[in-house]
Design a protein around this nucleic acid. Structure first.
Lengths: 398, 398
DNA sequence: TGACTTTGTGCCGACACTAAACAAAATACG
DNA sequence: CGTATTTTGTTTAGTGTCGGCACAAAGTCA
């Protein structure tokens, strides 16, 4: 007599993304009857995933007030991990993108990927032991294109890893080694993805991308530029995981040579090093290039040389974004890393360039927004790990 | 006691695309029991959409031979129409992409779009009267980007139409005026789309794109270059119908100026006029540029100047395709128009350029194929018109 | 206080599908 | 040539999910 099994996944996703604060709007969003929505909510509560408030929320409007739906505070979590040029970070993340516990770890990233993957997984396993939370999956974000379906890192940027490192397999093996439990009997199977892709997913679910149908994200790390596309709520990673490698769009035909064989690629023309160079600053070794570029932009934007350099980079970034708009026609663009800082410094210039150089930009220009989530790659890794639960809670939880 | 209503749409699509020749494979493809597949087939037959052969097909293998499923020969049709630089064409198209009747019409395309839209719809209505077939929808292909959701033609290429012509509204009004019946009581509501987009849809369903998950199509008309993307069986037209405007990718930084403000765009560097010019031929006024370019390629490929021109265009096209591969990561590419002819002339050169300039092309290059369907834009217009029936046959047919 | 509005729940039936047994029509094998 | 085997199709009964509807609950409004 259990009702509402088919709508279980969609309902959980609505609560997860905060789009269903009450059973009444859950009813409307799912397009089902109140009876079904009530049954679905009861089932999700029985599974320990959400809570239905005992006291109705204060009713501002007419009619019987609704009870509030929210993510269960003590519910299950997933293990989220991120590896970047300066080290790693591990965290436990609950539904709703809530960071439950984190373990920052800094170390020089070794040339052997398995070392650091073991370390980050061990840190996550430690958090699980400390908190005693149930773990339903694991996700890992790496600064590299990750080929599907084999899960190899094709261009592990500045990690001194060998190209083609089997990161997905190493991650899953590390989870087994550390005894991280999966939803069923055996160990968890981990998902490994590109950090910008996962950041886009996180921004779409919980950040500046909420509600966008076709969301384009572009971000710099310390070097190079990454892109990601979320279509109708799902990450578009192409037929083999290699979509949105936007770094080699031509944005300055007479520009710097790029290792790809062309000249003036987005990668070499708009990353932090390009900005520092354009501003006439020799990058120092003490902090990351991204940090130096951000600091320069924040503290010396009054300096004409710095400002001119910023405008130059913005113009080239705008050219690249316009090209992407012509191809992808997104309804929102989100920028991260240095690009986000450049957008903050002069929002109008970038929007104007994009509108001017995209074919139909004049009629209705695309909103360009800064990303809003802290640790969005990490949260995105968690989102990927949650995905099987969101797709079918019953199969995962039994 | 009617079984198999939910699976009706998917089942019809399988028969429509020829992927379900028998009830046995229909069972496997739908992932249901034989009982359900049988009921679904019976329901579709009762609706007059498919036929189940009385005699079993000659059995080559063991076991009871399967009865053949096929599209009902005398079944309903949709009205498909296409407008291009040289005139228009109207046709009735059944399921399976079968052209049932066609009415080619040539006229100089007038500056007022409503005239020719009325004419093409009137031609289609004539076919309906002649054949007496039931009409379930209508689709129109135009050589222009069509903005959604308002259905206006933004850049009606070489049709001397005003930019922003409300083609979708004009088409629907013409259908009402000509008395073309829709599935229900009132007149049909027409779908209007870009011709390359619709061609891609047709190739994906019935042509060289069958089975591709992420299909990229690039084609020239007489002038300019169009692109289209089919993702998981659905056309990706972006958030406002303007995706895959690929004509302004930079493929020759020092190239010809383009009306978009840049230089060396795919549009001006790889279209028929670019080829004729590169080969040192002055285009004549008698036949279309596309025809002249194709003829030149076919008859004088031995001429070193012609061959050099072809290779130049191929190299630039390859650069553009490589850029698209880096962004979209399709698992197949289909070329039309002059690009198709260039591919036929020297398949290896184009594939080599794309593999060399796409980031991960060396590891596993993308298949590049010529389009295989005659009148693929017209068939694609029909596909768009069929879509509501494929999505939910019962609602449309009652 | 009573009418109205909105939310939540219990009960019943519709219905799409599965499961399992049976029937049919071919090939394979003795 | 007849029987076993394999594969396909159909019938029947059963199951689970959801919609419809009536009713209850909990607030606002007059």
């Amino acid at each position: 007599m259990e009702r509402g099994r088919g709508a279980l996944g969609p309902a959980l996703e609505l609560v997860h993304t905060g789009r269903a604060p009450t059973r009444a709007v859950l009813t409307a969003e799912l397009g089902v009857t109140r009876a079904t929505a009530g049954a679905v909510a009861a089932e999700l509560e029985a599974l320990g995933l959400i809570t239905v408030d005992a006291r109705p929320a204060a009713a501002g409007s007419q009619g019987r007030p609704s009870h509030r739906l929210s993510v269960a505070p003590g519910g299950p979590v997933v293990l989220a991990a991120q590896i970047h040029a300066d080290g790693f970070r591990a965290a436990l993340v609950g539904l709703g993108g809530r960071m439950v516990a984190t373990a920052p770890g800094c170390m020089t990233v070794p040339a052997d990927p398995s070392h650091i993957i073991d370390a980050v997984v061990e840190a996550g396993a430690g958090l699980l032991r400390e908190t005693g939370r149930r773990c339903l999956g694991a996700g890992l974000a790496v600064p590299s294109a990750v080929a599907e379906p084999d899960g190899t890192a094709l261009n592990p940027l500045h990690l001194s890893w060998p190209a083609g490192a089997p990161v997905s397999r190493l991650f899953t093996e590390a989870l087994a080694k550390a005894g991280v439990p999966g939803p069923g009997e055996g160990p968890a199977t981990g998902f490994t993805g590109n950090d910008v892709n996962l950041a886009a997913l996180a921004e779409h679910r919980h950040g500046a991308g909420r509600g966008a149908r076709h969301l384009l994200c572009v971000a710099t790390g310390h070097r190079g530029v990454g892109g990601a596309l979320v279509l109708d709520g799902r990450l578009h990673s192409g037929s083999s995981g290699l979509a949105l490698e936007v770094g080699h769009l031509t944005v300055n035909p007479a520009g710097l040579p790029c290792h790809c064989g062309s000249r003036g690629c987005l990668d070499v023309e708009t990353d932090p090093l390009a900005f520092l160079t354009a501003a006439g600053r020799a990058p120092g070794p003490e902090v990351s290039l991204l940090q130096q570029a951000r600091d320069l932009l924040r503290t010396e934007y009054g300096d004409p040389a710095v400002r001119a350099a910023a405008e130059l980079i913005v113009d080239r970034l705008g050219l690249g974004l316009a090209g992407l708009v012509n191809i992808l026609n997104p309804d929102r663009i989100i920028l991260g890393g240095l690009h986000r800082a450049l957008l903050d410094a002069d929002p109008e210039r970038l929007r104007a360039v994009v509108a001017d150089r995209s074919l139909w930009g004049r009629s209705g220009s695309v909103p360009i927004l800064p990303c809003t989530l802290d640790h969005n790659s990490l949260i995105g890794a968690a989102e990927a790990a949650w995905q099987p639960v969101l797709d079918d809670p019953l199969t995962v939880l039994g």
